[in-house]
């Protein structure tokens, strides 16, 4: 279709209006506010940022975000990969996949309630109603506060919820890619006497690499945005806070818009590599 004057702007206008006023403009304002005090009245330079890197609460949040980024995408993608490959070999594949995929339809809040109950604690003299502590006591151990013990037990307990939700997503995408690999290729390797492990490691995995990268990137983005799970399960207590929850607290509990904005900018900066990768990949493909 040839261009016909300006009519394309009619199609673009609603989108540009919304994107401009709801995403671009606020982003610039937030950047600006991050250099001001709690009430956005006085310019204070980099003080909000300095506080993020010196104050204990935000340092813990930074540490936890880092912990999440290291542990969660790796575990979620590996589990998804394992499922994609193993489920391919059983008869009721679709059914099994649905079971794993199901949590994706559930909200983080719903999942939070589900898992809060899994981690439930009652004092040792009473029967345990949370399944994890029931297993512990059945094995002769004392029940523990899964969401209390810091920093490993409770943070891993929270990560487990995320993994429970998102492993299905990774599985679906990796499974599609795995099924896209030519069967002949795998069979040829089998006739050459390679065992299943070697086939997976030397044939399938290299071919899946691009997909794994995409999925891992997506998981990293979601990990950085994680808020609800922590909000529902621990509210950031006991050393479990992450940046998104800290920002919410600064904004709504302490009404410190400067500090909250600075935290938002840090989250954005952490995501910047992903944004750059996306834009570059787009440019490589389309930009002529």
């Amino acid at each position: 279709m040839r261009t016909r004057g300006w009519s394309h702007w009619l199609y673009l206008a609603p989108a540009l209006l919304v994107l401009g006023s709801y995403l671009v403009y606020p982003t610039l304002v937030t950047l600006y506010l991050s250099f001001f005090d709690a009430r956005s009245a006085q310019y204070i330079g980099l003080q909000n940022y300095a506080r993020i890197f010196t104050q204990e609460e935000t340092l813990i949040a930074l540490r936890n975000n880092l912990l999440w980024i290291i542990v969660v995408p790796a575990l979620t993608v590996s589990l998804g990969l394992l499922m994609a490959v193993v489920f391919d070999r059983v008869r009721h594949e679709a059914l099994a996949k649905s079971a794993i995929f199901l949590p994706m339809a559930i909200s983080f809040v719903g999942a939070g309630v589900i898992w809060k109950f899994v981690y439930a604690y009652t004092p040792p003299i009473y029967p345990q109603i949370g399944i994890l502590n029931a297993i512990r006591t059945a094995l002769g151990f004392d029940p523990i506060g899964w969401l209390i013990r810091s920093p490993w037990v409770n943070n891993l307990a929270l990560m487990a919820v995320f993994i429970w939700i998102w492993a299905g997503y990774c599985m679906i995408i990796l499974s599609a890619a795995y099924k896209g690999i030519h069967r002949d290729l795998l069979d040829a390797a089998r006739t050459d006497g390679a065992n299943e492990w070697e086939i997976f490691w030397h044939v399938a995995l290299p071919m899946l690499r691009p997909t794994i990268l995409v999925v891992a990137t997506t998981m990293t983005v979601f990990t950085l945005k994680v808020f609800d799970i922590i909000y529902v399960l621990t509210n950031g207590n006991f050393g479990t806070e992450v940046l998104a929850d800290r920002m919410y607290k600064e904004m709504f509990h302490f009404h410190n818009f400067g500090a909250a904005s600075a935290i938002a900018v840090i989250i954005l900066l952490a995501m910047l590599p992903v944004i750059v990768i996306n834009v570059r990949r787009f440019y490589a493909k389309e930009g002529r």
Binding site: Y22, L23, Y25, P26, T27, V29, T30, L31, L33, V221, L224, K225, A244, M247, M251, F257, A260, S261, I263, A264, V265, I267, L268, M271, V274, I275, N278
Partner: peptide, 10 residues
């Protein structure tokens, strides 16, 4: 992938 946090306050 813009985090929503960047837009909340304004």
């Amino acid at each position: 992938v813009l985090p929503g946090q960047m837009t909340f306050i304004p």
